[in-house]
Amino acid sequence: MSARWLDAELDGADVTPERRSKPKKKKLLGRRKLDDLTAADPENIADDTIRRLIDSGHITEIVAELKSGKEATAYVARGPRGPVLVKLYRELEARSFKNDAVYREGQVVLDERAARAMTGRSRKGLEMLQGMWVSAEYAHLWTLWRAGLNVPEPLVGPLPFDYDATVPAVLMRLIGTEDSVAPRLSDARLTPAEAQSAWQQSVQGLADLLRLGYAHGDYSTYNLLWWENTVIMIDFPQLTTRQNSNFSELLRRDAQSLATSFRKHGLQTDGETTLREVQRLARGKGPEPRIVLP
């Protein structure tokens, strides 16, 4: 999280939990209705975030809802550089998945007021956690994209100053086309040869993450896309590093989840065997880094 965003959020912030005797009622931003995100005249769009993304030139319009998950809903949009995927996060209080502490362990928040606000989960603290969650996905996407891994190209950044302005949305290049979006690997129908190729690519992807010092935290065919015989890794806000004391367990869980979810495609293996292969591959050479022009 950038210093600019943090200073703005902390200005006048109450870093203690709000009193239950005086709850401040407000409508939580959960799953947005598509009608609130579209209009013939952009000025009439009900959703503030989408109007801001259009006004800033990041997108021109929302086309369709793609998928709704535990933390966010993904939408297909049009932009100046082609099809865009807009991942619009719900407010923390409106998510079905709320306990992110296991992924954040080991992170250092230097500003004591911010740390207290987030620990106390005050209103400002929850807003900061939301900003960190969104900014983390951008930062991870840029790191992995530059390192040459098969991930969607982030469309805002690479400076935090730029992508802080899109919170609570993350914008990335759409995998597939507007009319034919890449399916999740869990939904793809594969031949035996394709399944074997997809498995090898998926294991290699987890190894590439490990080589960079990361565990995904939620790695399975549900967070892998299949497009033109290529596996694309997605969903990175919970990506964690070796500074997290849960790192080994999260990596082991990733390997187990991958092995379990691939049984649908006829591959029978176990988590420990998968983990050993991931660790072996991680000692090899990684992909060629991408050159990102300023």
Rank of each mutant, 00 (worst) to 15 (best):
I234G: 00
L209W: 02
A195G: 12
R253S: 11
L206R: 07
I232H: 05
N223C: 07
I232W: 14
D187M: 13
D187V: 07
L190W: 08
A215N: 00
Y163I: 03
E194K: 09
D162F: 13
Q200C: 10
A188W: 02
R173D: 08
Y222K: 12
W227T: 11
N244S: 05
P192S: 12
A165D: 14
L210Y: 10
D208K: 00
T241D: 05
D218E: 09
L190H: 07
L174M: 13
L212Y: 05
Y219E: 04
R252P: 05
L190D: 05
W227P: 09
A193H: 13
L190E: 04
H216K: 01
P183G: 03
S202E: 04
A207P: 01
E194P: 08
E194N: 08
L251Q: 00
S202L: 09
T230K: 13
A193L: 15
R184C: 12
R211K: 11
A165I: 09
E194Y: 08
W226E: 09
P158L: 03
S202T: 08
L251E: 02
D162M: 12
A198R: 02
P183E: 05
A207T: 02
E249F: 08
Q238A: 15
D187I: 06
T230D: 07
L250V: 09
E228S: 13
V203R: 04
W199R: 00
L185G: 03
F161M: 12
T221P: 10
L250T: 01
Q200N: 13
D164S: 12
T177K: 09
G213T: 11
Y214P: 09
I234C: 03
L171A: 07
W227V: 11
T166C: 08
R211S: 12
D218F: 05
T241G: 02
G205V: 03
Y163W: 12
L209Y: 01
E194H: 12
Q196S: 14
R189N: 14
S248L: 12
T221Y: 06
T221C: 14
S220D: 01
H216I: 06
F236R: 00
L212H: 04
P237Y: 04
